[in-house]
Design a protein around this nucleic acid. Structure first.
Lengths: 116, 116
DNA sequence: ACGTGTTATTCTAATCATAGAATAACGAAA
DNA sequence: TTTCGTTATTCTATGATTAGAATAACACGT
């Protein structure tokens, strides 16, 4: 069983019962930041635009604020950028997640000693 | 957004590329421990027996050892218990997971201060 | 022998998730 | 005013997941 045995942990945030933020939206937002477009973000991760749009919309609904500031029309057709709240949320999510992953990495050999 | 904002983290273990253990199998094993039967475990969590069986079988294949010691026939039709390796793995998984969750709980207000 | 309730295994049917199409709106530039 | 590439939105067709049926084997008790 020893073949590179390792933990993977996924983090999602809930507002009460309903999930409001997780790996999916996070990755989309990350890519919107570099693509300056939701469509570009979706395509770059092999996801249908309609799905990406739904994911963002659901997250926004659960959170109660907008994640994307988007414009339509214009020379390049428009685009999207992260709202300030989205920037903050994504930053916190990423730092928190990386902290947890680091900790998970550290603790792993303690709980699974024979596999290192 | 403040309505009981909280993190949920899920832990799964990989052997190289393929997932070999996660929340699904873990919950099944936990219930096999009290139900003394895979069927009972599956039913108790509203899962089809065939699915439970597949889940366990896939996990066993990825891990390279048996998770369940099962008997067929007899007065009560047979049943299943955890193999010693499964007991150890499940115990380690649960302790590790609870440690990570505890840590996540502690760190949360540090990364999401305005929400506590 | 037979009934019982399980494991084991495969197959099919139904459900769910997702991709992709279709359509409209938009605004800058040509 | 037409073209362009996006956002926005809904709908449908496809694909993946899952539940549940079906069948066999098993061994104990009656």
């Amino acid at each position: 069983m020893e073949q590179n045995f390792h933990p993977v942990l996924s983090l999602r945030l809930f507002c009460g019962e309903e999930k409001c933020f997780g790996p999916g939206v996070a990755e989309l937002l990350r890519r919107v930041r570099t693509e300056h477009s939701l469509r570009g973000a979706a395509i770059s991760m092999g996801m249908a635009y309609s799905k990406a749009w739904t994911v963002v919309k659901n997250s926004e609904a659960a959170l109660g604020f907008k994640l994307l500031v988007s414009t339509t029309g214009g020379k390049h057709g428009g685009g999207a950028t992260l709202s300030p709240e989205a920037e903050r949320l994504l930053a916190a999510y990423e730092e928190y997640r990386s902290r947890l992953r680091q900790y998970a990495q550290e603790q792993f050999p303690i709980y699974f000693p024979q596999l290192t």
